[in-house]
C-alpha cells in the first residue's frame, strides 16, 4: 500500500501532462487547445516541485531558530517554478490574443475549417 503513496505525485503530474496532450491532439476548438497547454504547464510544475521534495523535512525558510540547515527541502526547483508560473500566464494571454484575432478574421474557432492555414 505504501507504493501508491510513493507514486501519487508522479501519477498527478503524468496524468495532467497526458490529458493536456490528448486535448491538444484530438480537440479542434482553439480555446480547448489553449486549456490543454495550460494543463501541460501545471503538470510539469508539479513534477519539478516533487523532484525537489525530501520526506520529513520542512520549507527552506529559517524564520524560527529551531530549523537546522540539514532539515529543509531543495530550494532551487521552487525558485525555478515560481518564475515559470508568472511567465506562464503572460504567454497564455498572448496565445489567447492570437486566438481572438483568428476568430475575428475567420469567424470560427474550429481548426479544421480555417482554410488560410493550409498550404
Amino acid at each position: 500500500m505504501s507504493g501508491i503513496y510513493n507514486w501519487m505525485y508522479y501519477i498527478a503530474s503524468g496524468g495532467l501532462i497526458l490529458i493536456g496532450l490528448y486535448i491538444v491532439l484530438v480537440k479542434t476548438n482553439l480555446i480547448k487547445i489553449v486549456i490543454g497547454l495550460n494543463f501541460i504547464d501545471t503538470g510539469i510544475n508539479i513534477l519539478l516541485i516533487c523532484i525537489g521534495y525530501v520526506r520529513g523535512r520542512t520549507a527552506p525558510i529559517f524564520s524560527r531558530p529551531g530549523i537546522s540547515p540539514a532539515n529543509v527541502v531543495d530550494p532551487v526547483p521552487q525558485a525555478l517554478v515560481l518564475t515559470a508560473i508568472v511567465i506562464g500566464v503572460a504567454v497564455l494571454a498572448l496565445a489567447l490574443s492570437i486566438v481572438i484575432k483568428v476568430y475575428q478574421h475567420n469567424k470560427t474557432l474550429n481548426v479544421t475549417k480555417i482554410k488560410g492555414l493550409k498550404w
Partner: peptide
C-alpha cells in the same frame, strides 16, 4: 532568511 528569495 527565505532561501528561495536569495536563490531567485
Amino acid at each position: 532568511v527565505n532561501i528561495v528569495t536569495s536563490v531567485v
